[in-house]
Design a protein around this nucleic acid. Sequence first.
DNA 1: TCAATTATTGACGCCTCGTCAAAAAGTGCA
DNA 2: TGCACTTTTTGACGAGGCGTCAATAATTGA
Lengths: 247, 247
Amino acid sequence: MVELTRKQREIERRTLEILRVARPILIAEGFQGLSMDRVASQMEYAKGTIYNHFPNKEEIVLALAVESMELRRNLFAQSASVVGPARIRMMALGAACEFFTQHCTDDFLVEQCIRNQSIWEKSSEQRQNLIRQCEGHCMGIVASIVRDAVFQNELVIPETLTAEELVFGFWAINYGSQILTYSSPSLPAIGINDPFNAIRVHCCTLLNGFAWQPIMMHSEYNEAMKQINETLQPKFWSLKEQQHTVN
Amino acid sequence: MVELTRKQREIERRTLEILRVARPILIAEGFQGLSMDRVASQMEYAKGTIYNHFPNKEEIVLALAVESMELRRNLFAQSASVVGPARIRMMALGAACEFFTQHCTDDFLVEQCIRNQSIWEKSSEQRQNLIRQCEGHCMGIVASIVRDAVFQNELVIPETLTAEELVFGFWAINYGSQILTYSSPSLPAIGINDPFNAIRVHCCTLLNGFAWQPIMMHSEYNEAMKQINETLQPKFWSLKEQQHTVN
DNA sequence: TCAATTATTGACGCCTCGTCAAAAAGTGCA
DNA sequence: TGCACTTTTTGACGAGGCGTCAATAATTGA
């Protein structure tokens, strides 16, 4: 029994090893560039062994995405635990998004991959569920802040929206800007010099638009954001470190 | 000379034929599923001939993206030509985005492909420039509405933003929501039942947040949107038809 | 009509994925 | 320890994709 467990741990260890080898390849050369032969040779195992751990290339990518999404979720959870009005916690989530994009770019890119239908389709339902769970968890964290704001009479949700649909707008603006920032060949060429600042301004404006109390001018918002970052960034970094140690 | 021109036209015709064959494959089976052999056999030409028209698979995808982005640009131009206050024209652009996502889903998916770095890299600078031009043109259309609003004293741009950065927020929220809608496996499962309505509400809120006159309640916004759609949708459809006839 | 140019073809080299029979390693019992 | 049985690893293999290029076919122009 003990023997069996040790073997299982051995297998588990190697699974993580595979991911550790695959991740930099995926990031540097994309899904195309990631090849099973290459992973195998770099691990000094035969290809068949890799296929004992993952039934196909797509599963490896999804497994990597799970790791990356867990980091995001941890950043979110950290942000939500800040003490203060709901709006401040909402801003802390914005800070987490910004941190994730700017300092965990690799993880962001991996997350991107799984939005590709052909990759998603070929992976197991089980791992798909892990992703969905993580996504649902992230949504839950943000939505509960929204609900709390309503409860505290700091926000009224428009009647045609659910709390989650209100979150969706912030999700979309953050996610969209991240994608555009990293994939649009030359934003400065079309007049966008500081996309991160732009999104901060837009989020502040959107919060104000919903009359989410306390209303803030952009300068106040930036000031508050600075303080939030001072508090949270060390914790964000430590969460990021943790992830890389675990894997 | 006339003879030469006829030959060139013949070549041009076949280039378009290739795109017409490739598009449905790309849409149905993704970049992976699109194979040069398949395009060739479906066209009843040898593979080498296809390579006379496009140096690689990626170029075909970019060419398809150019077509799709031109449709988007045409929808945008149509929207911008509406008569009325800048805010109404801005809303008309939102309507164009919604139309593009809902009724030109294929084009939207093709547009998506080129955000993939490995595809982008392998294509010619020339075609990359076509894309950039189109993107720049779209941006120009929207930014000029923003500037017009400022000129008409209907809007004050926050001092840390350029007109383009203001547009960027709307771009991000629309683009982000489109991607999430089409790639997130089950939005309803996490509480997002009507993403299109949600984004309309968010856009209205954002416009209001910037104090873009005339301020509108969500109900007014929806009413105005309905009218805009009644006017524009027939034109949108005709632009879409045109595209498919040309190709 | 025929040489010169241009276009087309598809077999080829190289690569990748995922499989599977055979070989190797590990296990447990006498 | 020796030996039969199970599990794991291996890498050659089939199928199929990309992009090339020498050979073939078609076209042109004199």
